[in-house]
Design a binder for these strands. Structure first.
Lengths: 336, 336
DNA sequence: TCCTCTTGCTAAATGGTTTTAGCAGTTGCA
DNA sequence: TGCAACTGCTAAAACCATTTAGCAAGAGGA
């Protein structure tokens, strides 16, 4: 409990060598000319004393901390953030790094603070994660600090990781059509303003673009479209009730996320419609909810964990610096 | 981009003073005798150069890093972890600290690694968070490193933060009875083995003890009890189907968590029973799900954010070191 | 023999901050 | 006048690891 830290000097003393020698041996320098016996003695001494290098002291010389920062606008408001974090954490651990997590709430003042706090601690790199994809503004950082955008892009930094929303949108439509029951598809959740870029959200834009592209390829049009600003279950519930009351008949329902689909299930059940017999339902995100529903909701997954992992491995220089798109896998359950 | 770090020496030079003076002034030492003019000059110089102290260098002398570690078994497997993290993050930010997040998966080897990684970086304190409450084993840490247990306890460290599960259990029963409809209560999710401590989970034990206590106070017994190992929606679904098929009639259903309640809703709906008219339903945790259901699920909330916040503020020494119980608020929605 | 290379190692500088010890110069008091 | 106390400041050590420059001894070659 009270024992003092073991320093490199202690190890060197016990091994009967200089700390220079101990340092070189323990850091595994390649071209040193120290004897095999010296190596052995130093390693033995280090093991015996339980030596652990003081990272702050090392950072002072080397400017490397084996620490990265994960700065996001919201950590838990959206349940997805934790997937990103977990993936990032996993990759960081594999690369023998630790991760500082910072939350900004999207407020510029806190963003600046978070970045400064990270730089003060000389992190080796920063992952900027946005819960809603958008252009992220990032202040200058020192040249030797890596920057990766996660679920967002930046004009200044080319390293970024995004979900392949366009392909995902197409996949959803293809999945509905492949079951041979998707001739009369209704869509809920699309927001025209978003598409026009007034309320900028690249995610939604690209997802929808993919959907539209697939529909056009098949020379199809939606039999109905209902849009809304937010995509919570009760919105889905209300939109579907509206569709059922006044809209045309539909045999498939494409929901722009799983939460909308959740509400849709409730409205369909109330109306006595069976899934997938009467209506096939399809969502996006692979929210935890999707597996709870009866029947299970077929959905196009947002691969958050994979994205987090990729962002960190990109930071470690495992791949070329550019925009990386991560596949959105189709998760097939009973709803189509 | 390429600009070098501004050091204390730079500030001192610009102010025309020694770095000793600059250090004392910027760290706000109380009993220094430096002139008002010196103060002014140093602050002006620091502001002009945009000086930020190098935390690694400072840590070398002071052993304080304004960094804490949050070590948990699972970050995102349970959706609750993010609540704990968010609360902790919030409190840390308020106290001008940053947080290192580490995940161990409950594996002892990774636990040791995580602790060492944290100590190598000279964190000021460590929060050990367990997703399933239990006795946590914690290796020795240096005397000046604070330790707080979050959602778990440890023989060695007295600082801990737990949800007040006993009171929560009572509150659930009281809430059912208060509505005057809870005379025939069925319970799902309790596990006898857990209660006997074979599969040690203090959370479940205390929650159930509170429930039992309240029942006894009112001289009531459950009309049926169905237990199971895991508490996922489909378990709730199956247990309730079983109850409906072979069990006695019940007018209230107490589910040991919200996910079970979710499954219960599905089973009740299939059987044509209405909530709350035919059966009142009550859950625990205040899972995101609870608000999505129709009618909304009344539940006893696990105050994760509050717990995370408390753990960090306890670490900062804002309260006496002991076991702290956090209230579990009753969240009333339409299901009772 | 002298010179150069190689081998195996170390002294000392370095990074940026805090902190201890102490130095001039002035004031206060007897 | 003599001495203590105060005022306003600084030099240098300390924290711990990395890295540069270089030393001493032995080997090899001419």
């Amino acid at each position: 409990m009270v024992k003092k830290r073991v320093t490199l000097a202690d190890v060197a003393r016990l091994a009967g060598l200089s700390s220079t020698a101990a340092s070189m041996i323990l850091t595994g320098r390649p071209d040193t000319r120290l004897s095999a016996e010296a190596h052995e003695r130093v390693h033995a001494a280090a093991a015996q004393l339980g030596y652990r290098p003081n990272i702050a002291a090392r950072a002072l010389r080397t400017d490397k901390t084996r620490t990265i920062a994960f700065i996001s606008d919201y950590v838990a408001t959206t349940r997805f953030a934790s997937g990103l974090i977990r993936g990032a954490l996993d990759a960081a651990e594999k690369a023998n790094h630790v991760m500082l997590v910072l939350e900004t709430g999207g407020e510029p003042a806190r963003e600046v603070q978070a970045i400064e706090a990270a730089l003060d601690r000389q992190v080796d790199g920063i992952v900027f994660a946005a819960m809603r994809s958008r252009e992220i503004f990032v202040p200058d950082v020192p040249a030797n600090t890596q920057v990766v955008m996660l679920n967002g892009t930046s004009a200044k930094y080319r390293n970024s990781v995004l979900a392949d929303e366009f392909a995902g949108g197409r996949a959803a439509v293809e999945a509905l059509l492949a079951r041979g029951m998707g001739q009369q598809i209704a869509l809920i959740g699309h927001n025209e303003l978003a598409e026009r870029g007034l309320f900028r959200s690249e995610t939604v834009e690209k997802r929808f673009a993919g959907i539209r592209h697939a529909m056009e390829e098949h020379k199809l049009a939606f039999v109905a479209e209902e849009s809304c600003w937010e995509w919570e279950p009760h919105h889905g519930y209300e939109l579907v009730r509206k569709l059922l009351k006044q809209g045309p008949k539909f045999t498939a329902l494409l929901c722009l996320n799983d939460r909308l689909a959740f509400g849709a299930y409730q409205a369909l059940a109330e109306a006595g419609l069976r899934i997938p017999t009467d209506v096939a339902v399809m969502g996006f995100d692979n929210d935890e909810l999707a597996s709870y529903l009866r029947p299970g909701l077929t959905t196009v997954a947002l691969p958050h964990e994979e994205m987090g992992r990729k962002a960190v491995s990109l930071m470690m220089g495992d791949d070329e610096p550019r925009e990386h798109l991560i596949d959105m896998p189709l998760v097939v359950r009973g709803s189509i």
